[in-house]
Design a protein around this nucleic acid. Sequence first.
RNA 1: GGGGCGGUAGCUCAGCCGGUCAGAGCAUCGGACUCAUAAUCCGUGGGUCGUGGGUUCAAGUCCCACCCGCCCUACCA
Length: 530
Amino acid sequence: MAATGSNASEESAFYVSTPIYYVNDAPHLGHAYTTVAGDVLTRWHRQRGEKVWYLTGTDEHGQKIMRTAETNGVSPQEWCDKLVQDAWKPLWEHLEIANDDFIRTTEPRHTERVQEFVQDLYDKGEIYRGGYKGPYCVGCEEYKAPGDLLDGDLCPIHKRPVEWLEEENYFFRLSAYGPRLLEFYEQNPGFIQPASARNEVLQFVRQGLQDLSISRSTFDWGIPIPWDSKHVIYVWVDALLNYVSAVGYGSDQAKFDSTWPADVHLVGKDILRFHAVIWPAMLMANGLPLPGRVFANGWLMVGGEKMSKSNLTGISPRQLTEHFGVDAYRYYFLRAIPFGQDGSFSWEDFSARYTSELANDFGNLASRVAAMVGKYYDGTLPEATDAGAAEQAVAEGLARAVAQADTMIGDNLDFAGGIGAIFDFTRQVNGYLSEQAPWKVAKDESPEGRARLGTILYTAAESLRAVAVLLNPIMPGTAEKLWASLGAEPHLGPLAEQRIADAGTWGRLPAGADVVKGEILFPRLEEVKS
RNA sequence: GGGGCGGUAGCUCAGCCGGUCAGAGCAUCGGACUCAUAAUCCGUGGGUCGUGGGUUCAAGUCCCACCCGCCCUACCA
């Protein structure tokens, strides 16, 4: 984790959150998928020159964690501490996640704010004491909706009779917010994305909402209800509040004002409802601004089965990065799967894209350009003194790629489309080189020949300069290598300071730059293992 | 039970309001080239557009039924 955020200021930050992950177990591909997406999004906005805040963290309360800890013979806190330190934070560092903060729901800075928030709602009459009575399935450990039961009051999952239980709880008046939520969705059509997710939520809310039980008294691993410590706060109410507690709510008003509301909440589609219904209602109830949008990404499917809590048998992130490298890992899932949809992942597909797109199209392009500048100009970038229509076409292709990538990635969260636009451009440059055949022009030692050769190689190198900037949010390690290979830093400054808005401006890399053929960006993969 | 989504070339998928929509990328095969990571560039896709009906001058593109897969249907993160 690199603390890249600046201090709070008047400027409002582009604030992105991941879900806070439940630390019942080690992080898997699904967690990493969402976190990498958020990292690319926030790096992109930083590269635009915006102030950014990227938050991730862990959700550490709840019955399931309590039991897992018991099973392992440690306290819940010890269990969480160990996982966070040994598994979660190290993975994010490994994946080059540049989050600005990492919040844990067991930290006092969170628990105190949660208690205050809930107390506020209680004082306002948004929370009341009530009883809950309903059919409870012991196997599921949860109440079922009466309509879910099979004939004979059987649990639809366990096919066993349910028990009717009654429990005293505190309830949040969620039912009162249905109309206001619908009005909000109507006025903010982009609030829930993608559209399929929005439709599901709309239909759900239109059915009418029931009040939400926000306390539990059957276990104690949670934040106590301030006015009735026999109850702990329902984990989702606890968890959702991390998005405000982490940015100064109730503790640092200036920071809060310059950060909240969040611009994007990234969520898995399984937890969409909590973020698109309960969370906005909670904020409304306490008079706080609502987030800009909630974007639900899909499931990663491995061999047709979803990667999820119940199926952790899949491939671990580290297995993939060991074979393909961290940058290729960051690239692959965003490139191969339209963000927001479910997507199938396979080792074979990863290998195919690595070889075709990363190694052959892109890595090899960088390699051949650097090699030719070295071979024909001793590594000193020549001037482009004879640019014509072919060069113009390349410059235009770049401008188009920059514009498309910026809109798609930065605004639409269409990572696959934006990355595609960048790589289409690299293909264009490969084609340009084939047409111009600088290795043939090099045999022409006339002044005209030399002018053409220099122009061609400059055009290719300048194209790569822009590609390095565009790929920096996605593959920072690789982009840095390319930046170094082009000798750009002495003239243009650090890669991270290059602006997206300037990336498409032609001619930024000056002649005279020291181009060196660095290490291979994407070495050919070892024999396939499975 | 109710609601929604998907089933298009070997693979992953584009195809909005019906009429060059039968496509792209990868893979395959053929050719060119040699600067480069045996890379690149060009050419090459006769696939019942899930099945069966229907509407229409004309249907992946609309309607109906059916088959297959997936998702949602409130308090498990």
